[in-house]
Each structure stands twice: as C-alpha cells, then as structure tokens.
Amino acid sequence: MNNQCLVSVENVSFIYSKTKVLSEITLKITRGDFLAVIGPNGSGKTTLLKLILGLLQPNEGKIQILGKDIKKFSLWNKVGYVPQKATHVDPFFPASVLEIVAMGLLSSKRFPRFITKSDEKKIDQALELVDMQKFKTTRIGELSGGQQQRVFIARAIVNHPDILFLDEPTAGIDGASQARFYDMLDILNRIQKITIVLITHDIGVVNKYIMKIACLNQKLIFHGSHDQFCQSSVIEEFLKGEQHLICHRH
C-alpha cells in the first residue's frame, strides 16, 4: 500500500471567467504524505483544492482521487475536508456540536441516513481527538473561532478518512492552540496514518512537521521534500527572505 498515489493532478488549468488562475499543474500526492501547500494570497491554493474535491471543474487536464476520475468518484467517506473560513459560522445556527460532527458521518451511510448509537460513539471518539467532548451539546455559534475549527476537524475525521484536506485551518487561532493543533495533525498523520494536505501561510510552523512542500503561484513552482525545498534556488526569490523560517532545522 505504500507509495500508492491517492491524488493525481495532471496538466490541470483553470480559468475564472477570464483570468487564468491555475496553469498546467501536475502533482501527485502519495499515501502517508504530510504535504504543505504554500503560496501568496490569490495564488490558486483554494482553487486547486476545490478542483481536487470536484467542487470546480478544470478547463483542461485530468484529476484522479483514490484511483478514480473525480467525475466518477463516490467514496466520499474516505475524504475529509476542512474549508477555508469555516469559522464564518452563522452565530444563530441552531445546531449542536454533536449535530455538526454527525454531518461528517453521512457520506459513509446509506439512505436513509439516520444516526445510530454506534455512530454516536464514533462522534465521541472524534471529539475526544480534538479535545472538544465537553462541548458536545453546545450550540456551534456559542464556541470561539478556534473551538469551532476543532469541531470542523472532528467532522472531517469522524469517518477515519484516508486523506484529509485542510484550507488554512489555523487562521485566527492563538499561538499555543496552534502548536497543539499541529501536534494533533502530526498524530493523525503518523499514528492514524491519515494523509494530510495542508494549505497554510504559517511557514514557520511548517518546518517542524511537514514532509513535503508544494509551492504554488498560478504555476506549480516547486513540489518535493522539505530538504529539496531548502536546496532549491527557485524559491529564494519567491519567499523573499522568509526561507530561513522553513529551512532552519532545530
């Protein structure tokens, strides 16, 4: 099962109305990867993720996920997704944490998708992993942004997915919580064997955990291991002096 390709993006280009956002991207994500996708604002990171998840259709190229063309893909329970700005929650939405995490289970269930006692056990376990079991019956809108983000991660991992996509999950989360958050991702990756694709701007944090880096700016500027990244000359100009943040190993 090692070295199995979970996601394959082949020659993909994407155009929003008139502007080309992504151009000829080719990228493979292998089982077990902890991949960081970095790049400036507007470089197409979120767009690439939406293409991989089938939320947008590419103008050119081919996308496969878990060995299937995205258009025919149906094993959604093997995929977890934490969207960008998940924290923009309607504060009056009347759903409890339990109900939010239960949404994550729906993709693994057949119609009619009722939640059973054994499902509640899975929800408890997911909430425990993100340390939110105390808030099970709290209304989602009554939690802080960071706590909400944890709930969305619980929702994304409640099915034990093969691959987890996170779009800037720590935006607006305090430093200490961020460190704990990345420790948690590390555990998910190494112990639960979940492949992780993380879009992030905290390149400082990237250093400690990340195995691979993809650098995006309309084109894929770099994709490879952390060490290769530090030896590469292409990215020196791209990171504008911040390279030492990533490449300085403790």
Binding site: L53, G54, L55, S74, W76, N77, V79, Y81, P83, A86, D90, F93, A95, I100, M103, G104, L106, S107, R155
Partner: peptide, 13 residues
Amino acid sequence: FITFDPESAKASG
C-alpha cells in the same frame, strides 16, 4: 448539512 455548509456537503457527496 446543505443548509449549514453547502460546499462541505457537496464535498461529502
């Protein structure tokens, strides 16, 4: 689910 977060709902099939 689709009321709370249509995009994630779509990415959950």
